[in-house]
Design a binder for these strands. Structure first.
Length: 420
RNA sequence: CGGGGCGUAGCGCAGCCUGGUAGCGCACCAGUUUUGGGAACUGGGGGUCGCUGGUUCAAGUCCAGUCGCCCCGACCA
């Protein structure tokens, strides 16, 4: 991509509405824009980050034998009535009627819809276990949306649901999903912890949350000083001591909840009569698990965890572009030619690269590069004219080194390989 | 929904107390000079001051209502 053609409206001043740093930076870096309270559009840069997170989620879930499906965003009231949640769910569930006066809701979560898909498709225990997932927009009419993408009403979420004949089998998948989640957040370059949690409105008996550590996080995580067990505040408040070692000493840290995994048991499968025939020919209600990841929230959390006073410091795996080539003087033909050639070379090597070919002053390009947070800057500037070298700079560490024009691609590739 | 704050150009703000027909910085457009850390000069474009009603000769400014947005709380992936 050439920056001169890119829709990326960066701002010097932070809009008044944004208070926390991820919200400010996503607006300033031109990632996303507000449409109404709790509703946001993604601009090209923001969408690239989302797509990268989604790609990592897909790869890890597919590797864990999950299958991707797509359910409609809108669910008929009849399914929710069957589970009993039409009455239980509050105004957070956005309901409406179609022209025939049939009732529907925008899906905030999809246990009913997926269980319906399952019961229409599976009759035998031989098809189990099976785990289905989707990545799409969810809608929850939050009492108070806040902090931009951190708590929006429409948001992108990956939700997965597993079906099993036995609790033991559910247990195996639950643990496999926990492991997959650790890999996902690690690959995204995020420091996440898995904590014991309360299962809340979704129901079920066992659940764990994945928290990205950040001082601005909405949630409080308690770490047991006896055995290092991590749990969310609600769990400890209920029992007042560590459920594992009985210690009452805790250290408190703040976190952003980006994932939640549950063992649902037969909560929904019994309500919706999702059963299979066992090997004894006996109808058996299936065991279920469900597993969510807030994709758009993960993007916000990544900014909270990786930024400085200049802007965002994207982890390489989820950066909108890995490398930006900054040509400081667009009137200097040698610089322009070198920048373009380097850009073409990197593109052919399948490196995500953007060429800042705008006819603006060097300062603007530097500031934008720091703000948007491309992990690596390759600067073709005055040192190029003088010594024929290109400046290699890392956004995170600000480490800078001059590399000859001929060696720059090799240097970059070595750096990228060692950082993976 | 309770408490607090805010709506004036794309973004940040002043003007409101004390009414007289809208201004500053940045951004944007044109030209000239610039080109390593948000350049300079000159000349431009852009606002029914959130909306509705009222008071007044006259309302961005005063009064009433209403809508929207943000923060704290209750609630929540």
């Amino acid at each position: 991509m050439k920056f001169s053609q890119l829709l990326c409206p960066t701002l010097k001043d932070s809009p008044r509405e944004a208070e926390i740093v991820s919200h400010q930076l996503m607006l300033r870096a031109g990632l996303s824009q507000k449409v109404a309270s709790g509703l946001y559009s993604y601009l090209p840069m923001g969408l690239r980050v989302i797509k990268k997170i989604e790609a990592i989620v897909r790869e890890e879930l597919d590797a864990a034998n999950c299958q991707e499906v797509a359910l409609p965003l809108i669910t008929p009231a009849s399914l929710w009535q069957e589970s009993g949640r039409w009455a239980k769910y509050g105004p957070e569930l956005l309901r409406f009627k179609d022209r025939h006066d049939n009732e529907f809701c925008y899906g905030p979560t999809f246990e009913e819809a997926i269980t319906d898909m399952f019961r229409q498709s599976v009759q035998s225990y031989k098809a189990l276990p099976v785990t289905l997932y989707q990545i799409q927009n969810k809608f929850r009419d939050e009492i108070r949306p806040r902090f931009g993408l951190m708590r929006s009403r429409e948001f992108i979420m990956k939700d997965a649901y597993s079906f099993h004949l036995t609790e033991d089998c559910l247990d195996i998948t639950y643990k496999a999903m926990e492991a997959a989640y650790h890999r996902i957040f690690k690959r995204c370059g995020l420091d996440a912890v898995c904590v014991q949690a309360d299962s809340g409105a979704i129901g079920g008996d066992v659940s764990a949350e994945f928290m990205i550590r950040a001082d601005t996080g909405e949630d409080e995580v308690l770490i047991c000083q006896g055995c290092q067990l991590t749990a969310n505040k609600e769990v400890i408040e209920k029992t007042n001591h560590c459920p594992k070692c009985n210690s009452t000493e805790f250290k408190s840290v703040r976190g952003i909840e980006v994932g939640h995994i549950f063992k649902l048991g037969t909560l929904y499968s019994s309500a919706l009569k999702a059963s299979v025939l066992s090997d004894l020919g006996k109808p058996t209600i299936v065991q279920m698990g469900c597993y969510g990841i807030g994709v758009s929230r993960t993007m916000a959390a990544a900014i909270e965890q990786h930024h400085d006073e200049k802007g965002i410091k994207w982890p390489i795996a989820i950066a909108p572009y890995t490398v930006t080539i900054i040509v400081t003087n667009m009137r200097d033909e040698a610089m322009v030619e070198t920048g373009l050639a380097l850009y073409e070379t990197l593109k052919h090597q399948k490196i995500d690269v953007i060429l800042d070919d705008r006819s603006v002053s060097a300062g603007v390009k530097f500031k934008d590069a720091e703000l948007i947070g491309f992990p690596i800057q390759l600067v073709i500037g005055k040192q190029f004219s003088e010594t024929g070298t290109i400046e290699y700079k890392e956004r995170d560490t600000q480490d800078t080194i001059n590399v000859s024009k001929d060696a720059i691609v090799g240097h970059l590739k070595t750096k990228l390989e060692t950082s993976n």
